[in-house]
Amino acid sequence: MEEMGKDKLYLVSERALPEVLLQVVEAKKLLETKKVMTVGEAAEAVGISRSSFYKYKDEINYFHEDARGKTISFLLEMEDRQGLLSEVLKEVARYGVNILTIHQSIPVNGLASLSLSLQILNGLTDVTDMVASVEAIDGIRRMKILARE
Results as ranks from 00 to 15, higher is better:
K8H: 02
A132N: 15
V46F: 01
R94N: 13
G110P: 05
P18T: 06
A93T: 14
E26Y: 07
Y62Q: 11
A136M: 04
R68Y: 06
N122R: 11
Y54S: 01
L121C: 02
S13M: 14
L114I: 06
E19K: 11
G69F: 12
Q23W: 01
K90H: 13
L121K: 08
S86T: 15
G40W: 05
K57C: 14
I137V: 03
L121P: 07
N98Y: 05
L84F: 11
E14N: 10
N98P: 09
P107Y: 02
D126P: 06
A16H: 08
A42F: 12
F53H: 02
A45V: 10
S49L: 03
M1D: 07
E77A: 12
G47L: 05
I120Y: 00
L121V: 06
K29W: 08
A67T: 12
Q104T: 10
L22H: 06
R94Y: 10
L118P: 08
V36H: 06
G69L: 05
E32Y: 14
G69C: 06
Q82K: 14
E79D: 12
Y56E: 00
Y10A: 06
H64V: 09
K34C: 13
E77N: 11
L76Q: 01
L118N: 06
T33F: 10
V92T: 07
L89A: 00
R50E: 09
I137Y: 00
M1S: 09
R15G: 04
A112C: 12
Q104S: 13
S73K: 06
P18N: 09
Y10Q: 07
M78R: 14
Y95E: 08
